[in-house]
Design a protein around this nucleic acid. Structure first.
Lengths: 202, 202
DNA sequence: GTCTATACACCGATAGAC
DNA sequence: GTCTATCGGTGTATAGAC
């Protein structure tokens, strides 16, 4: 029909798939539903992806990258303040993202869980990318706030990802934003307690 | 074939379904796979459950109850100690459960996520049961440790459930028990910081 | 009540026309 | 490269024999 470059066709299918999963769930994301969303004939999918499984693997990478970009852009307009306040702000921004587009985050979790069961290696790989980004953010935040972490940054990063996962899952099942905000207060306190004033900057 | 009482047949199907989902995932849990696991003819399912959806709803209730029972039995042999140590122990016991039977917990998450998307009311209902159990456990624990919570117990319970969800999801995707244990140390400290010595017992 | 046989929709994948 | 038509398989659900 349109003679699109290979990579662009791949990208269109991937983004159509993300829309379908966000709207109707992973189990409804058949290749038929995806090509319909992308307004392509059925065959189109199978000459840029070997199989539905290969598409799903690409999707896991894709949504992980989207999350990574979202985190980084969140950090850009993070005002310098006390550590606790900065953590509160960052988590608050994430919560607002979640409230704005819950189905997107539901899709991320569905894909992660699918990966955790069927392709653990891949999902661990993507998790490692989150970990790297988070650790960098923690270091940048500490520098901005003029503090130092009292535990290894990569350990704190793992904990932070874990509580974020929990925040996401809990909010998605209860939709209780007020409780989530109180929980963020608790978390901000807990993580701020892992800092001390930076006594020297080399 | 066997002329089973209605409720017992329901129970057999439900427990077969749990086994299938734990072993092969929710998406593989077709009614055919479930009745095969239960060693029943296909028709059997449809005169005790109206549809696969009804079965899934029952399943959400069932696994929530199993979790509730597991939590309660965990609490029984909780030794009196300092709060922080008690929290550490309780979370450690949960982690061991998770390590022993990851696929069970994967199944719980798959069902929760399915519920979060397709039957939010039901899943919120089950979440409320967790919340109740957790709040009671927190109160019992504080009594045993001779401390009082400095925030409303039901607020702390919500936070605890949230971090537990996070612990579960993170461990299932990374299988990193060492990090999980370090994370538990952090959590035990954070929650212990929400207590103060109980000055009087009425 | 129990079970077999079957209806009918949809699935992923591919062969073959253009 | 592109698309249509179709294959073989599986899904849920039910009709009807016993």
């Amino acid at each position: 029909m349109r003679r699109l470059p290979f990579d662009q066709r791949r990208a269109e299918i991937i983004s159509a798939a993300v829309r379908v999963i966000a709207r109707d769930g992973l189990s409804a994301a058949s290749v038929r539903a995806i090509v319909a969303e992308a307004d392509m004939p059925l065959g189109a999918l199978h000459y840029v992806f070997e199989s539905r499984d290969e598409l799903l693997r690409e999707l896991i990478v894709e949504v992980a990258n989207r999350e990574r970009v979202a985190v980084l852009s969140t950090l850009e307009d993070l005002p310098a303040a006390g550590v606790q306040e900065m953590i509160r702000q960052a988590l608050g921004t994430y919560l607002r993202l979640l409230e704005e587009d819950p189905e997107q985050e539901l899709a991320v979790l569905e894909l992660s869980l699918h990966g955790a069961r069927h392709d653990r290696e891949l999902v661990a790989e993507q998790w490692a990318i989150y970990h790297e980004v988070t650790a960098e953010a923690l270091q940048a935040g500490a520098r901005l706030a003029g503090v130092a972490w009292t535990r290894p940054v990569d350990e704190i990063a793992k904990s932070l990802i874990s509580v974020l996962d929990g925040l996401t899952l809990t909010w998605l099942t209860t939709r209780d934003s007020e409780s989530a905000r109180r929980h963020i207060e608790l978390l901000a306190g807990a993580f701020a307690a892992l800092t001390e004033p930076a006594d020297n900057q080399p």
